[in-house]
Each structure stands twice: as structure tokens, then as C-alpha cells.
Design a binder for these strands. Structure first.
Length: 421
RNA sequence: GUGGGUGUAGCUCAAUUGGUCAGAGUGCCGGGUUGUGGCCCCGGAGGCUGAGGGUUCAAGUCCCUCCACUCACCCCA
């Protein structure tokens, strides 16, 4: 029979890797809690319309990257390509704004985008997603970045840069957009085909283009900060001032734009040079009009997402191993049964114990204990059984002593609790 | 969607101009120690060399097609 492989771009997270995943998740939860965030869990599947309206029709995600299918011939559903839209949907659907004017939420889970896989980019990938709804104060924007930086520190990631920019609001963006279009139109012929198309759909995205010719044209293009309305400008200035208040090193990148349409005002990205072409570890920004666009009240919001796989590949290696506490080696049928019993009694008391099922020799059993990384082993043969005792072996030093069988369970349990302190 | 690279044992990789080339290390199993792991020594199992076709006396090696993986463009976390 031919074996069935995983779907392209979908990865198994094997037992050797899961401890690190859990470690990151736990640290995220701890950090977010202390900043007042609560967890929300939303479905992986939503109506396609949610993402079309939320993320924007002209974005790459909606245009060509979504896993969309017709469900039983009556409605289009999509595997979520990001979490924000779903969280906004839940926020509106359950009237969370009514209970509290401010909602601080986070979620951790898989996202799906049908792109060509490469280093740091998968079709199913995982994000840690954080949102603050109901506050538009620039202090909140700075505080969110403070929390993100703190979290990165907690997972021992140091080599990164925070880039910030303001994308303006519906009041100031049209004039900026017009200026960019005017600038680009003059040299339209020198633009790459993609950018020529973007001229109509989303001219700001030409800023991202890496084609050398486009880079030159964009080099002296108008910059967003110069076109911000007084309100946006003040917001951005204050935001930057608060970043400095926290001594958060950051870089102004007036050419940074984001691939999702809903962003307004503050935008930021955490980048690193260590990831190859996929240099963004985290990214986010403010989206003051999104909730209303999705049929909710006019509530401002800001959030960010961290790419789990990318984060993990940046983390320094850590011996977050998992090993049993004791191996019960048994010789002879009667001893094997006793060892089997003790092993499971220990497990019921919360001590990770392993034993042998093969009836192999002592050498093979100790070898197994060593391979598993057990710090201790119990040796129990019919000989010991008859004398009502067992051998307690320290695997590191090789010291051995006799333990009365009647007190063995308690002895092991006590040693275990002592050691886990 | 478009390019480039790579496919040999579970894993990491070797195999001169096509000519005993199907190997090593590691892991696994066993023995050296009839009841004592790690180090060392010895042995064993395990591969239609990604798949299919072609050239040739001879193909892991050259050519074609397909597939998979990978990196990059694009975009983003």
C-alpha cells in the first residue's frame, strides 16, 4: 500500500517540538494576562464574506490565498487566513461592547493561506493574535508595543527591529493617495507590470515592490507622514513620544504599508534579518473603521499578530526535555507483574514511571532506562521479590541500595517530590 | 502563478571521466558481561538509488517526462 503524505504546506508538530510550542504559549498567556488581556477562541471556519469585507477585496489574501469552498451548495465558507476578522465578528455578534467599553483579547491558533511554501511560510501556520477594542488613545498603541517587546524578551528573542509608521485615516489618506498616484503616473512606463496594476487598485503597495526600477521611482515618492491630517499627526507624534518614554528602540519607516486594507493610523512590524526572505516575525496596527465595516458599532481597535513558526525558529535552543522519573526493570514473570503494578500505581500518583513489557534481560532494560533519560531505576528480580525488597539505582552515579518493597511506593514518591522542588 | 536547487538505509550524507558502487556515520536489534545503562569492541537487520521512459555492452551517474521537497520572486506572521 502506498503511504499517504501530509498536504503540501501543512506540517506535523512532532513530540520533540511540542514542549517549545507550549513554552511560548504559556509565556504569551502570562505576559498578556498581566496586561489585562483575556483569551477568546473563535472558529477556524467563517463565511467567506467576513474576510472579503474585513480584509479587503483588493488584497492578495482575498484575491488568491484563501481556502474557500461551497458548503453543500448553498454558501461559501473560508478557512480563516487571519484572526482579526473572526474576533471582530464575535465581538459584534455577542455585543461584547455592551458589557464593557474596552475589550482586550487574544487568541492562539492556526491560520490558512494557500501560498507557495518556503522558508518561514506555510499553508497552515500559527499566530498569536492580540486585539484591543474601544480605545483610540496613542498611549494604548505604545503600550501594546511595549507588551510585544516584553513578550519577545520573555521568549529570549533579541535580534529584531521594530518599524513604525502611520497610515493616516479616511480623512487624510485620499490626498496622500492622490499625490502618490500623481507621482507614479509621471513615470508609469518604468514601473513593473504588477505596480502598473496596483496604480489603480492599491497604489500604496508599490512601496513594497522590490523590483529595482520601481524602487528608484518610489525612492522620491511622497511620504505618508507629510500628508497626515492634524489629528493623525498628533496621534502619531504622541505614539512615538510614548515609545521613547518606554525606551523602546524603533525605526520610523515612512514607506511601510501593510497588506491588509483595514489598517489606519499606527502600523508596525517586527522584523529580523535571520529569517531569510520572510523577515516579519510580528506585525499589526490600528483599524479604527473595521468594526463598523463589519456591521458593528463605531469602535476603534488596534492589534498585532505574531508568527509562531517564525518566532520558534528565532528562539535559542533550549533543553526543554521531558523524561520519565523512574524505570522499573523486572526479571522473571512474577517480578514483571509486580513492576507493572508499581509502575502504574506511581503514575496514578503523578510520577512518570516506565517499565518493560518484553521480558528482555536486565542489560537491555537498563539501556532503555538510560535512553529515556530516567535519573533512577528500580531493579526487581524474583530473588528480591522473595526477600521483600528491591534495588534502587541512581543512574547518574550508579549507586545502589536496598529498599523494602512495602515502602517502595512511598519512597519513590517522596524522592520525586523532593527532586521536583 | 513564475524561476533556481535537490531527490541514495529511519536520520545526516559518500560513491573518480557512465565500468563490483550500492557504502559510511548515526539510530535500531543482538553479543562481548548466564542479573547492571553510558565508553569501547564485534555482529545483524534495513535501500526496485523519488516514479516512468530513453541512450548504452553497461546508468545512482547522461537525456526526457512526471512527482515530491526546498529556496527565491510575489506577499505576509
Amino acid at each position: 500500500m502506498e503511504a499517504i503524505g501530509a498536504v503540501k504546506g501543512f506540517k506535523d508538530i512532532l513530540p520533540d517540538e511540542t514542549p517549545r510550542w507550549r513554552q511560548v504559549e504559556e509565556r504569551a498567556r502570562r505576559v498578556f494576562s498581566s496586561f489585562g488581556f483575556r483569551e477568546i477562541r473563535v472558529p477556524l471556519l467563517e463565511r467567506t464574506e467576513l474576510f472579503r469585507r474585513g480584509i479587503g477585496e483588493a488584497t492578495d489574501i482575498v484575491e488568491k490565498e484563501m481556502y474557500t469552498f461551497l458548503d453543500r451548495g448553498d454558501e461559501y465558507l473560508t478557512l480563516r487566513p487571519e484572526a482579526t476578522a473572526s474576533i471582530m465578528r464575535a465581538y459584534i455578534e455577542h455585543h461584547l461592547y455592551a458589557a464593557d467599553p474596552v475589550a482586550k483579547l487574544y487568541t492562539i491558533g492556526p491560520m490558512f493561506r494557500r501560498e507557495r511554501p518556503q522558508k518561514g511560510r506555510f499553508r497552515q501556520f500559527h499566530q498569536i493574535d492580540v486585539e484591543i477594542l474601544g480605545l483610540d488613545d496613542p498611549r494604548v498603541d505604545a503600550e501594546l508595543i511595549l507588551m510585544l517587546a516584553h513578550f519577545l524578551r520573555e521568549v529570549r528573542i533579541e535580534d529584531y527591529e521594530i518599524e513604525v509608521n502611520s497610515l493616516g485615516c479616511p480623512r487624510c489618506r485620499p490626498s496622500f493617495r492622490a499625490a502618490v498616484v500623481a507621482h507614479l503616473k509621471g513615470r508609469e512606463g518604468d514601473l513593473c507590470p504588477d505596480c502598473r496594476r496596483r496604480l489603480d487598485t492599491n497604489p500604496l503597495r508599490t512601496f513594497d515592490c522590490k523590483v529595482p526600477g520601481c524602487g528608484e521611482i518610489v525612492a522620491d515618492a511622497p511620504l505618508i507622514p507629510d500628508y497626515l491630517c492634524p489629528d493623525c499627526k498628533r496621534h502619531f507624534d504622541d505614539f512615538c513620544r510614548y515609545l521613547e518614554l518606554f525606551s523602546l528602540r524603533h525605526r520610523l519607516n515612512p514607506k511601510m504599508v501593510r497588506g491588509l486594507d483595514y489598517y489606519t493610523k499606527t502600523a508596525f512590524e517586527v522584523t529580523t534579518t535571520l529569517l531569510g526572505a520572510q523577515n516579519a516575525v510580528a506585525g499589526g496596527g490600528r483599524y479604527d473603521g473595521l468594526i463598523r465595516t463589519l456591521g458593528g458599532p463605531d469602535v476603534p481597535g488596534i492589534g498585532f499578530a505574531v508568527g509562531m513558526e517564525r518566532l520558534l525558529s528565532l528562539m535559542p535552543p533550549d533543553g526543554a526535555g521531558e523524561e520519565p522519573f523512574v524505570f522499573l526493570a523486572a526479571l522473571g514473570e512474577r517480578a514483571q507483574e509486580t513492576a507493572y503494578l508499581i509502575c502504574n500505581r506511581l503514575r496514578l500518583r503523578g510520577v512518570w514511571a516506565e517499565t518493560d513489557y518484553s521480558g528482555k534481560g536486565l542489560k537491555a532494560q537498563l539501556k532503555r532506562a538510560d535512553k529515556l533519560g530516567c535519573p533512577f531505576a528500580v531493579i526487581l528480580g524474583d530473588r528480591e521479590l522473595d526477600e521483600g525488597r528491591a534495588i534502587w539505582r541512581d543512574m547518574e552515579g550508579g549507586d545502589q541500595r536496598q529498599i523494602d518493597l512495602k515502602t517502595l511506593d512511598d519512597f519513590i514518591f517522596a524522592t520525586y517530590t523532593e527532586r521536583s522542588k
